[in-house]
Every structure is written in C-alpha cells, then in structure tokens.
Design a protein around this nucleic acid. Structure first.
Lengths: 194, 194
DNA sequence: GAAATATATTGAGGCAGTCTCAACTTGGCA
DNA sequence: TGCCAAGTTGAGACTGCCTCAATATATTTC
C-alpha cells in the first residue's frame, strides 16, 4: 500500500519523518476503531513515541485529521470536477453526494468535525472543506441549470445535507444514511405544481 | 414556573428532594450553556453539593438527561396523538416533525444522545425515545394512507431524519435545520411519475 | 571523524474531568 | 431525646489534554 508521501514541510530529519508517518498510520487505525475523538495518547503509545512527539508534529487533533484526510478530500473535489462531464447533471450530483457521504463516514465523529470546520476558518480542515463545498456547488449549479434541482437550493444546503445523512449513517447504519440522502436529494427536486 | 414534580421514587427525605431539584435546575442551565456533554462537576458545584451527591441521584449522565426531558418528551408524544385529528394528514406530520426537531435542539449534543438511545435499550432514555418514535409512526401511517407520503418510508426513517436535521441545525443554524427538514419531508412524497 | 549546531524527542507535571466509596452527617420516627 | 436509615461528603484512583525544560540525536561543518 504505497501512499502519496504526506509531505508536510520540506526536509525533515530522518527520524522525524519516520515518526510522522508512524503516527499517521496509527492514527488511521485508532480513529477507525474509536472514532475521531479517540485518545491521542493511545495513538502516540501505539506509534512507540512520547505524546510530546505527537503534539510537536500535530499541534491539534484537527491538524492530525487534516493530514490524514488531505489526499482523500482532494480526490473528492477532483471527482466532482470529473463528474461535470457526466451526461446527466442530476445523476452526477447524486453520484457525487453519495461518494461524499461515504467519505464522511470513514471515521465515527467525522461528520461533526467537517461540519464544524466549514464554519470555523481557524480550523486546519477549513480550506479542504471549502474546496469540497465549492466542488459540490459546481455540480449543484449544473443540475439547477438542467432543471433537475430547485433554484433555491444552495451549496450550504448540499454540504449540510451530506454531513447530516453521514451523521445519521454513522449513528445507525450506512443503509439508513443512504435512505435519508435519497429523501433529501428527492426533496431538492423542483416542486411539481400538482 | 411550576413544574410537574419530577417524582423519582416515593418518599425522599426532605434534604434529598431539595438537592434533587436543585441539581435538575442547574443541569438545565449548564446544559443550555455548554450542551449535554457539559461537566457534571460544574453542575454539582453550581447546585452547591458535592459531586458524590449528584452521582447518587443520577448514576449516569443519561439518567440526568432522562429526568430533565421526561415531561418534554411525554408532551411531544401527546402532541402527536392530538395531531391525529388534524384535517390534513400531511400537514399534521410536518407540524409534528418540526416540533420534534425544535425539541431535539434544546441542548447541543442532544440529537446524538437521542439517536444513540433509540438503538441502545439499556439507555435510560430508551423508553422515552421509543414512545416518540411510535407517536411519529402513527402520524406517518396516516399520511401514507392519505397518499401524502411514500409507502416505503418507515418510522425509523422519520426518527433518523428528525434527529439528523436537528443535528445539522445545532451545528450551523436552526434555519438550516428547517431547510433540510423541508427537503427531507418533500423527498418522502410519493414519486410523481413524470 | 569529531565538534558544533540545528532539530527532535522525552516524560514529568499541571490541569480538568469521571466515578467510587468509606467515613461522616442529619432528618424524622418512636 | 435518641437512634438509625437515608443522605452527603470529598479525597483518591483513574484517564485524558497539553506544555516545556531537559535531554538526545541527525546533520552539517571543518
């Protein structure tokens, strides 16, 4: 499993880089097991370093999360761009929204972090979240232009919807998340004046 | 503000009852300020009792929450029953769902507790949550019979939807919660075969 | 290759929170 | 009044967060 080097700043000392990677790897498994609120001490312990080392590499939990999600979130944004070429604007939106929901469910508690980060511009995750939101907006706009989605739905609505259904999914079951997403997207259809 | 006596077990000693009420009152304000994950020590401190006293009255955070929400949740269930007489089945469902969402937003973090409690039958809140879910189910069934809501929507869907939009609302703004709720309910309409 | 230097790591310590329980009040009945 | 069941207390064991002076190590320089 070759990962793209997480590439923090250039030229780290060899031992530092080793610990950095080790910490990231352990963080991934610990977050998977216990969610994003897992003990940072446990991550350090498992990585075989003192907790101070963890804090020196990742001053906050958010910073650690950011490093862990960087690639994944970039991918999500790129996927949105690619889907702009999809023949059906409406379908493209649905496909992407589903992918975004799945992404948000990798770690328990992630939806909360991502939702908080879009509001809080001091968050290390803020930029990545904004990029995702902007990517979604493109797909949304196209679907609106195609008449598949109500004109008054906003990118914030879409972002909130995705996170809310991911949250529901992580609380109960992924299937429940999927169901709510379907309802939510359907509800964004233009009103049929019956 | 006369409240219905929270009535734990019969015949408490006078000082015990006094502390019990005091704790509940302080819990309400502290939860309002800091959400349901607020420090229990602070509640005890503010109530002017030792933390052990808090734990003796409310062995878990959930127990405290249950006592705090008991009346409110009963009311919500009753409201649903009353709304069964509403002329429009569809409107009745919407009105109730909105009320349930507002209820879920009284304390930050409550949506998470309520969502967890419906799954976890050992939770002190489980029974109250089930009652709310059952109450919603009645309204849902009527709306389905009236053809206003898809037949395949379940009470669990409704419960999850309400909690998910309340969660979104507490993360961003109540207005955002309202918007998502509208989308969700709209999406539960029977498919118009265009 | 050794000294000098910049870079990392360590872990104890201060803080806050949860929860428990043995020792101690104190309310209320006989 | 005196007794004892019921209630309260708060120190203490635990876990977690985060900091920072002391220490160790990689890399550069000569």
């Amino acid at each position: 499993m070759t990962t793209t080097g997480p590439a923090p700043q250039r030229k780290m000392r060899a031992d530092a880089r080793r610990n950095y990677e080790r910490l990231l790897a352990e963080a991934a498994t610990v977050f998977t097991e216990h969610g994003v609120e897992a003990s940072l001490e446990e991550i350090a312990r498992r990585a075989g370093v003192a907790n101070g080392t963890l804090y020196s590499h990742f001053p906050t939990r958010q910073a650690l999360l950011e490093a862990l999600l960087r690639d994944r979130m970039r991918t999500l944004s790129n996927t949105a761009r690619d889907l702009l070429d999809h023949p059906s604007a409406g379908e493209a939106l649905i496909i992407w929204a589903r992918a975004a929901m799945v992404h948000t469910m990798v770690y328990r508690g992630l939806a909360t972090s991502l939702m908080r980060s879009i509001e809080d511009e001091t968050s290390q995750l803020h930029a990545a979240c904004q990029a995702v939101l902007a990517a979604g907006e493109q797909l949304l706009n196209r679907a609106q232009a195609a008449g598949t989605v109500r004109g008054d739905a906003t990118a914030s609505d879409l972002y909130a919807l995705i996170n809310a259904v991911a949250w529901a999914g992580e609380q109960t079951s992924p299937a429940q998340g999927e169901r709510l997403l379907s309802f939510g997207i359907d509800g964004m259809r233009p009103a049929t004046d019956s």
